[in-house]
Design a protein around this nucleic acid. Structure first.
Lengths: 238, 238
DNA sequence: TTATTTATTTTGATTACTCAAAGTACATGG
DNA sequence: CCATGTACTTTGAGTAATCAAAATAAATAA
């Protein structure tokens, strides 16, 4: 069994390497994500690599092996099921659920997890719309585009929000920009780098392109032309 | 904040010193309860005593201070609320709940605990009938007597079971000897050291005096005469 | 190319917890 | 009153995780 420390390293590593086919995660990045100094990360990563869960290339970075990915996905599954459980069953605030789950994910047993899973009806996404890996370690993510890619007049449904910070989630909720909400793009102003989005039955909300990019939507009537990325926003949510 | 290790020491200490007004808990006893060697317990207890949570008397033993008791009661509250929650809400088996709660009790936040408490309707006892300390750290225990103290023909209701082992709990459940169950004493045989008890609507069950003493009941029509203890069975349940 | 900045690794030390084994105090039985 | 066994404490050592600071390598600027 991996210690909770190692589980955290694996989870962060997975989230970080997720959208970078084959690239190594630099030490400094990982250290910042886990919240330790670079020296500590180096030592831990070498130990993790020794146990076969990652490949470590000195001065280049680190990358999970298949085994490491599987373990990381199990941690992620626990995390996201717990988040949904905390929100749906215990009525914990959306913006607090992430932090709470961060602790619980390392101590919950398989038995309890299975009960939670069935109580929630084997859900496929957590409260932020992030996909929940299956118990077999399969992970499926929808091809979504972001609010930032839509034209004026487009109408869509928010599927996912890729920012876990309490502050951003509180803002999103108070504006009505939550998963499952219908939204119409009222104005786009590429020059000002901002758009105006109106959630059904709510006031229009001003969003910078950076903020808009955090809302993934469907269907995706993306404007043609200069779409720089096929997958516009890396899924950064733990 | 006390580490989970220290929380465990405090909890065990509280349970052990509970019914012994003023007596010190011997090191060996504590070590066995926590599951460490005696040397380890000595070192830890000295550290705990230094932080003001216990009084340590070399070669005599250790005893919680008021501050230590308060902390222990908060751990116990978390443990017992979690046990009830696991059984009532998640449908976890009665006999497994204890072990699961043992882990969770050290990571659950005040916020989540408060939600669990209100979801359960601010309960006063856990699934074994053990009292749940209040959030203010108050602990109230009913004056109960045990099945072992009743005469043939007496009828009572089981209030509490003072053994947390999975095996015993499985036996109790399968016999129908669960909290809230009505029971009639069919025979008592002090010579053989055994009694026969019949739960309402079930087959009679043979119990040794030791086993019978683990079931606390009410009302208590105790037989007169040689009752050795006012509080017959020390509450040993974590 | 050389110098400087930046990222990374190494080193040495620390904290919290643990054990095994050696040493010590004490009650108890002869 | 001595001898002995049991419970307890001390000692020395180990593991897991961490940090600060020194050393090193690579990238960038001059």
């Amino acid at each position: 069994m991996a210690s909770r420390t190692i589980e955290n390293y694996l989870k962060q590593l997975w989230l970080e390497q997720q959208d970078t086919r084959g690239k190594y995660v630099p030490m400094g990045k990982l250290a910042a994500l886990v919240g330790v100094t670079a020296g500590t990360a180096t030592t831990m990563v070498k130990a993790i690599a020794d146990s076969g869960l990652a490949k470590y290339a000195p001065r280049a970075g680190v990358r999970l092996t298949k085994a490491g990915e599987q373990l990381a996905l199990h941690v992620l599954r626990r995390h996201r099921l717990l988040e949904l459980f905390l929100v749906e069953v215990l009525g914990i605030d959306w913006s607090d659920a992430h932090g709470e789950a961060e602790e619980l994910e390392h101590v919950i047993s398989e038995t309890v997890l299975a009960r939670i899973d069935s109580l929630l009806g084997h859900p496929s996404v957590d409260p932020h719309g992030d996909p929940i890996p299956s118990s077999a370690g399969k992970f499926e993510t929808l091809e979504l585009c972001s609010l930032a890619e839509l034209n004026t007049g487009n109408a869509t449904v928010i599927e996912r929000i890729v920012d876990q910070s309490s502050e951003f989630l509180r803002f999103a909720q108070s504006s009505g920009l939550v998963p499952r909400a219908q939204v119409v793009i009222e104005h786009t102003n590429p020059q000002a780098g901002a758009i105006s989005a109106r959630p059904a039955g709510k006031e229009p909300v001003m969003l910078s392109m950076v903020a808009a990019a955090k809302f993934l939507v469907r269907p995706c009537n993306a404007r043609r032309g200069k779409r720089r990325n096929r997958r516009p926003v890396p899924p950064v949510s733990p």
